[in-house]
Amino acid sequence: MKHLGRIAATAAIALGALAGTAQAQQSTVDAVKAKGFVQCGVNTGLAGFSAPDSQGVWKGLDVDMCRGVAAAVFGDASKVRYTGLTAQQRFTALQSGEVDILARNTTWTLQRDTSLGLDFVAVNFYDGQGFMVKNSLNVKSAKELNGATVCVQPGTTTELNLADYFRANRMQFKPVVIEKMEEVVAAYLAGRCDAYTTDMSGLASTRSAQGANASQHLILPDVISKEPLGPAVRHGDNKWADIVRWTFNVMVEAEEMGLTSANIDSKMNDPNPGIQRLVGKTGDMGKQLGLENNWSYNIIKQVGNYGESYERNIKPIGLERGVNELWSKGGIMYAPPVR
């Protein structure tokens, strides 16, 4: 028994010490550099954001976020390992250090930012809840949906937003609540409800999946909730947060300046001082982040600007730029200056 006690005590101390050293490792950026890859938490499969293609290669807007960070840190966008996370797992995976970045179409809310021990660093997609109806219904705005039956998935903010919206506009509705996404879509297509509500991105991909019949469905212009989706890192890890945030900002700024993965090499000697700074010819932006000075060049060259990433991933699921267009072109995508 005595021995057992001693062993237990030693084990406890050893565990404590292990925890101590882990804490002493402070910044994620050092840990990432030491292990040689970025561990990225993504959705287990969501078209346009993160999903493996037929060859098992991860593709998507969120995936590009992680590839951008890898390009910034290592100069090699392929140095990413992906962990597919379900909605329940995602925050624990980040908190426990299983992943370095959580880029899993996660809505930035106050509660998540504060009490979950994570920090959102950017918004890479402005989503919002909307409605889809059949053209034959002859409805042009959500305001005309009084008395409609609406297909909705339970247990998410979607259901609450729906009730809020109809109450705020003094309208009546009948919810048809179905748990599984495939089934709720099938119910809508079969005509069990007049309208189907979920995030705009989800509506668009559902619509485009109808192939030739897509034109029979109309996504109403009304957006009834704000769902800013963005990457998150662990709370208090500011150096790492800076790298992720400015990786994204570089992608947006590059689009604004017309830099693409295709033309960046020819623009290297462009006299525009903004471009000179962005490609790392002048200034020491990279050094200030603790990276190589060609970090931004690598991001643009290997991953491309935000518009390219959007074209590649989100366009195929049938979603136009909309609010995710640059601020200079009527959207709200706006990055602080890289200088």
Binding site: L15, L18, A19, T21, A22, Q23, Q25, A31, T92, A93, Q95, S96, G97, E98
Partner: peptide
């Protein structure tokens, strides 16, 4: 389980 393990040990 990951929450009970020390940080860095996964």
């Amino acid at each position: 389980l990951p929450l009970f393990l020390p940080e860095g040990l996964t």
